[in-house]
């Protein structure tokens, strides 16, 4: 069972989606992108709430883009959950349940057995999310769409639920399209990742591959690689590439077609050490400008010789001895120096 989009395009007066041609195989594909990039519109097209201006959508080889939403077998979990407020949880689940589906089993799986007699308005955000997912699952969908399912929740619940969601979704043998703008969520939940910008999919692939090889500065930035530096390729031996970033030469493992590149480094890929301590990889002498602690993490703003500003993110315990004005060496492994096409 696979979902395929061929040349799908949707035109609004101020926005155009596509043309998109892509396949969604069984497994979780996370669609990641900023607000207004067309993620939710993509789901509306697949669900049948919008009709494409051009192109076709196939489900398991059968064309479905001309079918109304009720005839597509596409389940959907909305950001607002969209539970029926006039029905209790049990009635919500029975509303569209397929006759052969064991509702009790799904309730057990999602731990909502205790909620069946409750009205939706009495549920917490996390409980609503579970009920909405259960309601979609008991309809026995051939495709499951999730539109920012955790976006309305507080951060601690969101972190916990995304792990639960990953487990539940991993057991489904259907294409699951999971829309989010949160890169942490994307890295946890999905097998595959598609990055959207301005109505187009600009990169897609296995989640790890995309995180390791962003194709552009936009993708790198959106994946949380806050350090984007302009560079020039000065040498390569087929395995390692030398790139000049200002007066500093960095070693990277990636390859690129053009000499002009952007260098993207994730803040977590930067290790900090005292000067004189032996390190491996690219060693950059820096001075600490500022340390900002956030719960378990600390963000260290650095000023590096010849490069300028870098941002590192370390465990808050490791940041205890770091103070503004202190000299440190920032170390980045060649594999974490990502070479991307410049957006300019």
């Amino acid at each position: 069972m696979a979902l395929a989009l061929e040349g799908v395009r949707l035109e609004y007066p101020t926005f155009t989606l596509g043309p998109l041609s892509t396949r969604f195989e069984p497994g979780v594909t996370v669609v990641l992108g900023p607000s207004g990039s067309g993620k939710s519109t993509l789901l509306s097209l697949v669900a049948g709430f919008e009709s494409p201006t051009a192109g076709t959508i196939y489900l398991d080889g059968e064309r479905i883009d001309h079918r109304p939403p009720e005839d597509r077998q596409v389940g959907m979990v909305f950001q607002t959950y969209a539970l029926f407020p006039h029905l209790d949880v049990r009635q919500n689940l029975r509303f569209g349940a397929a006759p052969h589906v064991d509702i009790d089993r799904t309730c057990e799986l999602l731990e909502i057995e205790e909620l069946l007699d409750r009205d939706p308005e009495t549920l917490s955000g996390g409980e609503k999310q579970r009920v909405a997912l259960a309601r979609a699952l008991v309809s026995d969908p051939a495709v499951l769409l999730l539109d920012e399912p955790l976006a309305s929740l507080d951060a601690p619940i969101r972190r916990r639920l995304r792990l639960d969601l990953r487990d539940v979704l991993a057991d489904l043998d259907i294409p699951v399209i999971y829309v989010t703008h949160d890169q942490d969520e994307a890295s946890v939940v999905g097998d595959r990742l598609a990055i959207m910008l301005d109505g187009d999919v600009v990169q897609e692939g296995e989640t790890g591959e995309v995180f390791d090889g962003p194709v552009s500065s936009f993708v790198a930035d959106f994946l949380g690689m806050e350090n984007i530096l302009s560079g020039e390729i000065v040498g390569t031996d087929g395995q390692e590439t030398l790139v000049d970033v200002g007066p500093t030469t960095l070693v990277a493992t990636g390859l690129t077609r053009s000499a002009e590149v952007d260098v993207a480094i994730h803040p977590r890929a930067i290790s900090l050490a005292e000067p004189g301590v032996e390190t491996e990889g690219n060693a950059l002498p820096c001075e600490v400008r500022r340390v900002v602690t956030q719960h378990t993490d600390a963000t260290v703003l650095l000023s590096c010789d010849g490069i300028g500003r870098l941002t590192a993110r370390v465990d808050v315990r490791d940041a205890a001895d770091i103070a503004p004005g202190q000299s440190l060496v920032a170390t980045v492994a060649p594999a974490d120096v990502h070479l991307t096409e410049p957006d300019r």
Binding site: M76, F78, T80, A82, H86, G96, R135, S139
Partner: peptide, 27 residues
Amino acid sequence: IDREVEQAARSLGKGPLETFRLVSLPL
């Protein structure tokens, strides 16, 4: 009425008239 509630009914297999009768009218 939240449009997504009606869309949810459609995605759960109910046609426009059933959605009207079971969701829009009661709400």
